[in-house]
Amino acid sequence: MAGGAGLTSAPPLDRGIPDFLERPGPSPVHRLNPLTKATLATVTAVAAVALGGLVGPVVLVLVAVILPAAAAGVLGRLIRTSLLLALPIAVSAFLVNLFFFPDGRTVLVEVGPITATAEGFGFALEILARILAISGAVTLFYLTTRPAALVIDLERRGVSPRVGFVANASVQTVPAMVERAAQITAAQRARGLDTEGSVWRRIRGIVPIVGPVILGSIAEVEERTMALEARGFTRPGRRTLLWTPSDTTFERILRWGLVAALVGLIAVRVTGVLR
């Protein structure tokens, strides 16, 4: 019984730009040069530590993280991701400083042998503000920058393609490994591995799932390395870049300005002018 449907043809490309080239980002923040965003993230993170106190990092978070994230339309994702990223270290740092701050005098609460002090609480809030500033800055960069764009931009500026490839591959490996793990789980379940039963059964299932993920990744690294070598990846000299992210005079001035401001801030802190 032959089907009646005729020959199907490939759908037309919806845009004139091929998939492997960068498309303009959806917001001005997305469209900033990747190095500008990397500089902003680095300066924000280091400045939060250098500034210390509570007000400085909080203002930094508002100006350099929350406002740009809102402008880029990623505020919700930024809050979720950066909280997830910072939560384990933030909670432990908060509790340690709250209960074990060495100069704590004013007792707030006593829980058995440990005491929460007002001084410890204040310092814990300061630490929390710094951690949130760092995680927020890193997350904003991650949410608004394609790793490939950063790699290409760095390569254009003379950074070794190897460095760029390692950075890009590290980020791209995560979704690939998640996909691989899903395939492996399906294959092992098809051989009767019970991943839906008791906790003990699930623990027994870890090795058959994690084993192929790791072994396969190692084998893949070897194959990928050889494939890269075979296509002249380690050849010395400049490469032809089909596309590079835009960069403007304003952004160059902004980057140098941010770096200068950070150097100035650190100098002021080291010399003790700002207390």
């Binding site: 691989r180 395939q183 492996i184 399906a186 294959a187 092992q188 379940r189 098809a190 051989r191 009767g192 591995l193 019970d194 991943t195 839906e196 039963g197 090795v207 058959p208 799932i209 084993g211 192929p212 072994l215 396969g216 084998a219």
Partner: peptide, 23 residues
């Protein structure tokens, strides 16, 4: 039925052996 129950009746060999070999 669960996949584990069906595995006793339907044996499925995946295309890529490296996505199942672990021993």
């Amino acid at each position: 039925m669960t996949v584990a129950q069906l595995a006793a009746r339907i044996g499925l060999v995946f295309q890529d052996p490296d996505r199942q070999i672990f021993a």
